[in-house]
Simulated scan of single mutants.
Amino acid sequence: MATPRYRPEQFVDSGWDSGTPERKARFVNSLLRFIADDFPRERFTRPLCLGLSTHGYFGFIAHYDIHGFYDEQMSTPARRERFLSDLASDCQKDAHLDRPDLWSDVKAILAIRLMPQAEQAPAARRLAPSSSFGTRPPAAGPDAPTLF
């Protein structure tokens, strides 16, 4: 994943010292570099941990300290995959909000950056009908009871 540099002017002040545009830009840049470099433990810093667990409202709160956070979320490939999935899901859920106090501006950027490559490219596909009106219900299977 290439990591572009985000600048403070791309973010809105949250109204809290922890959510200045400068801190938000620093957080996004650090997090994306950290992920791109495959989660090096020595680069999981206190500001990065705080951004994920308290300041950024990403939902990662049930950890005793920075070491417990890393161990629980990033210490194995399976945990990293789950962490990225949970982070992407949270970001996509809140990205549309106009709530800089909840870091929706940060989440909007992360939602796009963490989206799987397959979902980023527009794919030609047949659209499903918008309504089920007029469609036949599925036929009962051989072991399903019939009432009439």
Rank of each mutant, 00 (worst) to 15 (best):
L84A: 08
F60H: 07
R80M: 07
Y57F: 14
Q73K: 06
A78T: 14
L50H: 02
G59T: 04
Y64P: 00
S85T: 10
F83G: 03
T76V: 06
I61A: 08
Y64M: 10
F69Q: 01
A62K: 14
F60S: 03
D71P: 00
S85I: 01
A88T: 01
A88K: 06
D94P: 00
G59K: 01
Y70H: 07
F83Q: 05
A95M: 11
L87K: 01
A95E: 12
Y70I: 04
R82T: 14
R80D: 08
E81I: 00
L87I: 02
A95H: 10
A95F: 09
L50D: 02
H55I: 03
F69T: 01
K93S: 10
F58K: 02
A88Q: 09
F58H: 06
I66E: 10
K93V: 13
A78E: 15
D90Y: 00
S89Q: 14
S75P: 02
R82N: 06
D65L: 10
L84Q: 13
G68F: 03
H55L: 01
I66F: 00
E81L: 10
Y70A: 06
F60P: 01
R79Q: 15
D65S: 12
F69D: 01
A88R: 13
L52I: 11
F58V: 03
A78D: 14
D65R: 08
F58T: 01
